[in-house]
Design a protein around this nucleic acid. Structure first.
Length: 370
DNA sequence: AATGGGGTCAACCGCACTTGC
DNA sequence: TGCAAGTGCGGTTGACCCCAT
């Protein structure tokens, strides 16, 4: 829109901040608050642009910033949320309260992304780069994926349409109150809630692959949120639809299985038990006959089980992937006793995404994105 | 000891969105 | 309603550090 940059004035300093500048900025903000960032430098006696001051404050000087090495739990959170949200660093940062988006972004780019790539996993899609590794019958699997994607996208659109009409009278108010768009996670919660309620009510909507939206009302603030999500996190969104396409077995808390339990129990502690319990009802809704019928033909594939687990194992010297990106046989395979060679493609990924949903559910209610 | 390469991270840049007039 | 200012966000850059040669 032809807006002039804030830093184009000659004479403003750039580059690394000196301790004196830090002190000035800190002292001013502590006394007056930052107020208008543009006006701040002059008032604080700094030869910096407001933007630079804001960045310095938010990324470095803020007192509530935790610095230093990322914990295992933080790594898990970043990986899982990145799988769901993509490069929305600020959104991810809301779940790591003492970390800045910049820090998380840097950590992802310099550590986690490389680890994923090393393992043959596309860090953008969080899927293996070589789909042929996933199963002995890649084509039929892909066909099944497409089928499920279509099925669930259809169901999602149906639910969305119903929500839109249901909330039509109040949506504008909600939009105003909600502030910035809350992309796809509203939908995830909605799905979760929908499935949970479907389990108990055996609603016809659920039986037909649709969703009983009655239980969603309380969770959704923006009934049209998926529309923005389609543009914002389209790829991840699609991945979600694909990954959840199976109904067999039970969920014992997402990816917190026997294998790697030491690492994942941290996540369990982090996650609100109540939320976990609520989410645990989610897979039960998958017992819907129509869904099961359509998924029974899906061949078992030895997909990347718990790749965040693997990723973190790799970081601690444990090697579970062969050099060509395939997974080496490490014994028991995936948990839950699923058949085939070490686990079921969909089961694993359902669990993976369930663990993300757990995270979503456990997130603070005032989170700007959830 | 010097040097080159790779890794890390603070900071900058430019675009997009929100807000106020 | 349209425009401009203010702010937030994500991608990128460049300086610094460490390590191998």
């Amino acid at each position: 829109m032809g807006r002039s940059p804030c830093c184009d004035k000659i004479g403003l300093k750039k580059g690394p901040w000196t301790p004196e500048e830090d002190q000035k900025l800190l002292a001013y903000i502590e006394e007056h608050g930052h107020g208008s960032w543009r006006a701040l430098p002059a008032k604080a006696g700094l030869q910096r642009c407001g933007k630079s001051c804001r960045l310095r404050w938010t990324n470095y000087l803020r007192p509530d910033i935790k610095r230093g090495k990322f914990s295992l739990q933080e790594e898990q959170t970043i990986i899982q949320l990145h799988a769901l949200l993509g490069n929305r660093w600020s959104a991810i940062a809301t779940h790591l309260p003492k970390r800045t988006d910049n820090e998380i972004k840097n950590y992802w780019n310099t550590h986690l992304k490389k680890r994923l790539a090393k393992m043959g996993i596309d860090p953008i899609t969080h899927k293996p780069k070589n789909d042929a590794l996933l199963s002995n019958d890649g084509q039929s699997k892909n066909a099944a994926n497409l089928s499920h994607m279509a099925q669930w996208e259809s169901a999602r659109l149906e639910a969305e349409a119903r929500l839109s009409s249901e909330f039509d009278s109040t949506s504008s108010q909600l939009h105003k109150a909600a502030g910035p768009a809350r992309p796809c996670l509203d939908v995830l919660k909605a799905w979760n809630g929908g499935w949970s309620s479907a389990k108990t009510s055996e609603a016809a909507a659920a039986a037909s692959g649709g969703v009983s939206v009655a239980g969603i009302a309380g969770e959704l603030e923006s009934p049209t949120s998926t529309l923005s999500s389609a543009a914002g996190v389209g790829e991840s969104s699609a991945a979600f639809v694909e990954f959840v396409g199976n109904s067999s077995g039970s969920c014992d808390g997402g990816m917190m299985k026997e294998e790697g339990e030491e690492e994942w129990k941290n996540l369990a502690e982090y996650t609100d038990p109540a939320a976990v319990h609520e989410t645990a009802a989610f897979p039960a809704a998958w017992e819907s006959e129509s869904m099961r019928a359509s998924s029974e033909h899906v061949p078992s594939g030895n997909f990347v089980e718990k790749f965040t687990d693997l990723l973190l194992s790799t970081s601690s010297g444990e090697r579970r992937f062969s050099d060509d990106g395939g997974e080496s046989d490490n014994g028991s395979g995936s948990g839950g006793g699923s058949g085939g060679e070490g686990g079921d493609y969909y089961e694993d990924n359902k669990n993976y995404w369930n663990s993300i949903l757990n995270l979503v559910n456990a997130s603070p209610s005032d989170s700007p994105i959830f």
